[in-house]
Write a protein that binds this DNA or RNA. Structure first.
Length: 486
RNA sequence: GGCGCCAUCGUCAAGCGGUUAAGACACCGCCCUUUCACGGCGGGUUCAUGGGUUCGAAUCCCAUUGGCGUCACCA
């Protein structure tokens, strides 16, 4: 028996929004295909005309690209199983639905969805049209009456299938509704188009959300009706969000950003998001490594590492992962990437952007933190004597008052051309030695007087350098005045 | 409600009948330090409950409880 080539797919509906859970599904499907030398197919499921969002296909492709997931086949990627957009395959579904009617696995239903059989036990439908005589059916068809085609479910017994994660799943057939295959508008339902396309596109492994566990027997029955091979099913546990009261529920808007796009806008690194999401419901088993490139993800991926229980999305850990990426990044690359997040910078900061960015690089987790990180450099925060209190370095406002005048005098003598970090550090160090004051104490006082904020990216001299001579001195004097006025 | 899925630290998780129950994030100490960060060291009543099976159970079985999902001419 020849080994069949693995083919997986990602089949989003074009909503213009890539939920983290969907991204993860796409990622796993992609990784599994690549780990096994297979193909990953992108298919657009746009059978609901009322939900169609313009440009959504474009959006999906851009998102996948940003995430580093490259389809082997799909709209815009080519492939032998196209078209890869379901609305362009309509005639196909109709043909297959009619075939099922002929073989007795489906039937025409002329009921009005709003009026008829609304009290039936199956989603408002009671299987009435199963019993229509051929004459009645022909009459309706001849009149051009609207109809749907429904799947004829077995009335008793049960249907089972194998799920890689969940083992044998069995559902009583009595739970299965005579689901609609072909809608009034001629479009197939998701449940039908899925089976047809997965078969026609040679999909071998279906990865999708756990919400499909219960409806999969309907698919199985469909495959059997056609006499087709049943693919391997892998139902992924949902991604959860933590609620205020500590409970969890499926990740949604109220938990914060839930789309890949939102996260990118917040300044998390796309690679880091993908890395973190990969770990949310999967683990490499053979290593404790947590930072993975797409390449490494591919080589480590295996189905055994997939978790069958839901995972809670943790923004904190995502932040850590993203921070790790920034720490490992080329300074120049980071500076360039971070620039748009800094907003309008005063000239003196814009001139020092590279060194400012370098201070930021190792201390932030997302680019969106930058404005608040550097706010104090743009405008001196209001005076607060409390800032001059630090136990470890024995700093007090009084000491600051004593130390500052000499520092100001010293700095005033520094020529503009020597206003650099190294030079300032050397001068302050010499001053510290001359006065016999502890370095931590002196530096704390200078830093606070210049920054006006307890926590700052960078130390005293780095801040002085960033601020420039004129600016620094003005701030130092202002702080000293405030201290004297106490 | 019927049906189904799930259940190890706060979170992600390893574990597949015998372990001092890994590791990471977060948290708390301490060290280092020109602040913060980084880095280093250390800390914490984690196997939902109750029954089995077994010499032995976090691991297997059953029940309970809880969470989640699903019951559309949406995907």
């Amino acid at each position: 028996m020849t080994q069949q080539k693995v083919r997986t797919r990602f089949a989003p509906s074009p909503t213009g929004y890539m939920h983290i859970g969907n991204l993860r599904t796409a990622l796993y499907a992609y990784l599994f295909a690549k780990a096994n030398g297979g193909d990953f197919i992108l298919r657009i499921e746009d059978t609901d005309r009322t939900r169609y969002v313009a440009d959504a296909v474009d959006f999906i492709e851009r998102t996948l690209k940003l995430a580093g997931i490259t389809p082997d086949e799909g709209p815009g990627y080519g492939g032998d199983c196209g078209p890869y957009v379901q609305s362009e395959r309509m005639d196909l579904y109709k043909k297959y639905a009619e075939e099922l009617v002929k073989t007795g696995h489906a039937y025409y239903c002329f009921c009005d969805p709003k009026e008829d059989h609304t009290t039936g036990e199956f989603g408002g439908y009671d299987r009435t049209c199963r019993n229509l005589s051929q004459d009645v059916i022909d009459e309706h068809l001849k009149n051009g009456d609207p109809y749907v085609i429904r799947q004829k479910m077995p009335l008793d017994g049960e249907t089972s299938y194998q799920d890689v994660l969940h083992g044998t799943v069995t559902i009583p057939n009595s739970e299965l509704e005579d689901q609609v295959l072909l809608k009034r508008d001629g479009m197939p339902t998701y449940n039908f188009a899925n089976v047809i396309d997965d078969h026609l596109m040679g999909i071998t492994h279906i990865m999708r959300g756990a919400e499909f566990i219960t409806s999969t027997p309907k698919y199985i029955l469909l495959y059997q009706s056609f006499g087709w091979d049943v693919p391997v099913f892998i139902h992924l546990a949902p991604v959860m969000g933590k609620n205020e009261d500590g409970s969890v529920s499926k990740l949604s808007k109220r938990h914060g950003a839930t789309s890949f796009d939102d996260l990118v806008k917040m300044g998390y690194l796309p690679e880091a998001i993908v890395n973190y999401v990969a770990l949310l419901g999967w683990n490499p088993k053979t290593t404790n490594q947590e930072i993975f490139s797409m390449q490494e993800l591919t080589s480590h991926f295996s189905l055994e590492g997939l978790s069958k229980s839901p995972a809670v999305f943790d923004y904190q850990k995502l932040g850590w992962v993203s921070g790790e990426y920034f720490k490992a990044m080329e300074p120049a690359k980071f500076a360039e990437m971070a620039k748009p997040f800094a907003g309008d910078l005063p000239d003196y900061l814009a001139a020092h952007w590279d060194s400012l960015a370098e201070l930021l690089r190792t201390r932030i987790e997302r680019l969106g933190q930058i404005p608040q990180e550097i706010g104090f450099l743009c405008e001196q925060p209001a005076f607060d004597a409390e800032l001059y209190v630090n136990k470890r370095n024995k700093v007090t406002p009084e000491k600051a008052k004593d130390l500052l005048p000499a520092v100001i005098e010293l700095l005033e003598a520094v020529p503009e051309s020597e206003w650099t970090n190294d030079s300032l550090y050397a001068k302050l160090e010499a001053h510290i030695e001359a006065t016999g004051v502890k370095k931590g104490l002196m530096m704390w006082v200078v830093r606070i007087a210049a920054a006006g904020q307890k926590v700052t990216p960078g130390g005293a001299t780095e801040i002085l350098t960033l601020l420039g001579k004129e600016n620094s001195l003005a701030r130092l004097k202002k702080s000293l005045d405030a201290l004297n006025a106490m």
